[in-house]
Simulated assay, not measured.
Amino acid sequence: MNIIETGIPDLVILEPKVFGDERGFFMESWNASRFKDAGLDLDFVQDNHSRSAKGVLRGLHFQNPNPQGKLVRVTSGRVWDVAVDIRRSSPHFGKWAGVELSAENKRMFWVPPGFAHGFVTLEDNTDFQYKCTTYYDPGSEHSLLWNDPELGIEWPVDGLELRLSEKDKVGKPLHAIEAFE
């Protein structure tokens, strides 16, 4: 597994070893021992799977309290995936990193607790899967405004008809969220 640094500590892109031939491919998407050897000693309690049409923007979500770490990947289609450091004590507070995840590139993105997370789908029928370190808690869920000018996230949305949930349309700007200390 190849680990690519993002410039924000603990937030990494993972490229698994993929073995393929004319029949298809095989890869390990999770192996606790291998991830631990790579410095990611993780304990997952929940797996989630969403399917979205092109132009669906989900996020930027986080839980506080009960923060979740998420190992995310795409198994069909393509997304632009973003994580924002919302730990006030971090020198990277308010900084973001983004990566294209696709069925073709098979990359994964580790989003640790203390980050807001979201993505926009770039193709129809995009399947997005993620493992979580903490159970979903609707009472702890919050939305950071996806297009907050203070963040300056470079979303590749030109020409896309964006579709957002009501909660994502009314996300709070960075200065108004319940950030982590």
Rank of each mutant, 00 (worst) to 15 (best):
E5H: 14
G7N: 02
G7W: 03
I13G: 02
E15K: 15
P16M: 04
G20P: 10
G24R: 05
G24A: 03
N31H: 15
D37H: 13
A38V: 09
G39T: 06
G39L: 11
D41Q: 10
L42E: 04
Q46T: 05
D47C: 12
N48G: 13
H49R: 14
R51F: 12
A53G: 13
L57T: 09
G59C: 06
Q63M: 03
P67R: 08
G69H: 04
L71V: 00
V74N: 00
V79M: 07
W80A: 10
W80F: 15
D81E: 09
A83H: 01
F93C: 08
G94N: 01
G94E: 04
W96H: 13
A97C: 11
V99T: 09
E100R: 12
A103V: 04
E104M: 03
E104I: 11
G114Y: 06
D124E: 13
N125M: 09
T126E: 08
F128G: 01
F128T: 05
Q129E: 13
Y135H: 15
G139N: 14
W146D: 08
N147L: 03
G152C: 07
I153V: 11
V157H: 10
E161M: 07
E161W: 03
L162Y: 00
K167M: 03
V170S: 14
A176I: 09
A176K: 15
I177M: 11
I177H: 12
E178C: 13
E178K: 15
